[in-house]
Design a protein around this nucleic acid. Sequence first.
DNA 1: AGAAACATGTAATCGGTTACATGATTAT
DNA 2: ATAATCATGTAACCGATTACATGTTTCT
Lengths: 187, 187
Amino acid sequence: MAFDVRTICLAILSSGEATGYEIKKQVEEGPAGHFLEASFSAIYPALARLEGEGLVSCRTEAQGGKPDRKVYALTDGGRAAFDAALRDELAPDRFRSEFLFAMLFADRMPAAHVKRLIEARIANYRAEIAELKAAQSDSAGSAFVRGYGLAIFGAAIDYLTTHRHLLEARSEGARPEPEARRHAYQS
Amino acid sequence: MAFDVRTICLAILSSGEATGYEIKKQVEEGPAGHFLEASFSAIYPALARLEGEGLVSCRTEAQGGKPDRKVYALTDGGRAAFDAALRDELAPDRFRSEFLFAMLFADRMPAAHVKRLIEARIANYRAEIAELKAAQSDSAGSAFVRGYGLAIFGAAIDYLTTHRHLLEARSEGARPEPEARRHAYQS
DNA sequence: AGAAACATGTAATCGGTTACATGATTAT
DNA sequence: ATAATCATGTAACCGATTACATGTTTCT
């Protein structure tokens, strides 16, 4: 079993019971939120399947009007399965960036667009850093992961700010932008 | 159209004609190889579909024994489609790391395993850096992307070497959970 | 002799996304 | 009044992976 949505559910449940909704929130808010994703329509079927396999148990709490809360908890089998998953081979890290892919072709794009993309990316990383700083760590693992995130996002911002001129300062680009030209002196 | 395998094909073909096989090699070897993937069984159907849509043209070169080489080239429509893709909204960068996910639960894992995982990750990043250093840049874009890779992989190694003790130095040693201890006769 | 590179493709499967469907409660 | 949060789920679709299928040439 790879580190798919099912394993993520097991992981969250390993620190206490939760509903599908809460699992999603915890994934989003936890330090690993920057390194994984889990949507409702992936989580709900995953939990149903895990229950069928006996890896989680489910207790239903009725509430007026709202759908019943279905509170899931790890079974012994589930805990064993999670431990096994932790011992599995890890898939290599994958850093997927449409931004970098696009930058390969920066010389085909209007300079203003390139500039906008770079600035958006910087803003994005700043936001992620702010989020990581705001979170608190409840374990060595989560402190480590937070620090890791801060380190690489910080490095990304550093690189972008110090090297953006490589893409922005163009001699005779495909589509010369007079305005961008003017500003190019400032960096 | 997102930055899927089809777009990757258009991108590679935008710098010259190629066969499916060559596209795969170029993606792997190019600086973006660290940020994308494209397998044969994704590329071949993608090219067939692009041809059906008139975005690429195909010329077949017979060769004795081997399957014919099918050399693809961008059509005008294909070039326009690629330019459009570059102008599209970019999906946010996604850094997927089973390693970091596992590290969240480092305190549930045998210390030796944690150590091994960290060392493997460092070795891995060193290898990626070596690859990036070995490559040569043929455009501003590719120099930028290479530098970016070197920056963040370097930052990752730095962080790992300076902070691994957070996970490795544990007060009470590797703890199989107390309950399991009691019942487990074999490790 | 054997491995690796060259070269193309299909079929079955899988995991996940998007869009849909519903509706109460609480905060602004 | 309106948005956000809480709360669950299904159906259709999609892109990609895995395993399969074939065969030559070149390097070690």
